[in-house]
Nucleic acid binder design. Structure first.
Lengths: 168, 168
DNA sequence: GACCCGTTCTTGAAAGTTGAACTATGTAGG
DNA sequence: CCTACATAGTTCAACTTTCAAGAACGGGTC
């Protein structure tokens, strides 16, 4: 295969593959919408913001540097800045200067933030369970885990030659 | 289990389940981000908008009623209105009045819209293939299809008692 | 017709996201 | 010290999404 200007017919998806792809899109968008609405209603924030609180709650001293939080939540620093600003207004997160690096900021989960999680986590887990784990057999759960890990490997940013595909 | 005010300890996710859930979130967000960027770069629109053009391209006379298009793309009518307005500005979609129902509108794919798809579809398919089908075994693809279908069933809006869970 | 109710689609404002530009700080080399 | 460059985080403008009205039509019923 040439690197650029490849004029050969692309390898379209087979009928089966198309069907799987559509099912994938269907299910993932429905689930993300469902969780977004559930959390917006019960916790007053979108799913991504909830994920930020969860990350913080599991970090030592319930705080993380902005960049680390962005990486673990797989969002841009820009997006995180806006998100933390909003969560700060709600009183769920507090910013703290990093003593060792004056550029740095910690995002720290407040007690109120912990309380929000304590109050809303059960409903969220129930939603996840109802949509996924209560409907799949143990074998399917295991298969799903394997499949998702494989897919993630191929998409890992800065993964093995991720930005140097011409070297493969 | 009580219907409301259930004070029993919620069924938290097991370690294995948590791991699968994280892999799922990780993979799906990475893939969606990847496709969004790929299409924004190569086609000048986000993934959802691209999906709208695809739906239209497969419809008879390359047109659909707004509500049907919204349903098949699983987005709200409001969102679709804004999206079609944007696609119309690009010249890729045209609105047409419905003769039989004066409230109705058709969204019709223009020749330019077809051309955009023709030009960008190969790259998009390649991205999907590279992220999913080239990395999974045929068995895994089949497993994924089954799993996604099962999950979608449980999330289907207006599905079996979807909004009446207390009757189950 | 007049009324009511449901459906179709649009609109406007607020919230969220993106990518690029920008500030401030750290780090390495001369 | 000074320059050059990298890193951490924010900000701005453009764009997208959501939510709550709202405008217009259709299909009854009286």
């Amino acid at each position: 295969m040439g690197v650029m200007g490849d004029r050969t017919e692309p390898r379209w998806l087979s009928d089966g593959e198309q069907h799987v792809w559509r099912s994938y899109l269907h299910a993932t968008t429905l689930l993300e919408d469902h969780l977004d609405r559930q959390l917006q209603r019960d916790a007053g924030m979108p799913h991504v913001y909830y994920g930020l609180l969860v990350q913080l709650s599991q970090a030592p001293r319930r705080r993380l540097r902005m960049t680390e939080l962005a990486k673990s939540a797989k969002i841009t620093r820009s997006r995180l800045s806006h998100a933390v600003a909003r969560l700060e207004k709600n009183g769920w997160v507090r910013r703290e200067d990093c003593p060792s690096d004056k550029r740095g900021q910690f995002a720290q989960l407040t007690d109120e933030g912990v309380e929000v999680l304590r109050r809303t986590a059960p409903g969220h887990v129930a939603a996840v369970r109802q949509a996924m784990f209560d409907r799949l057999s143990p074998e399917q759960v295991e298969q799903l885990g394997t499949i998702m890990r494989v897919m993630a490997e191929g998409l890992e940013p800065a993964g093995p030659d991720a930005d140097l595909p011409w070297l493969r």
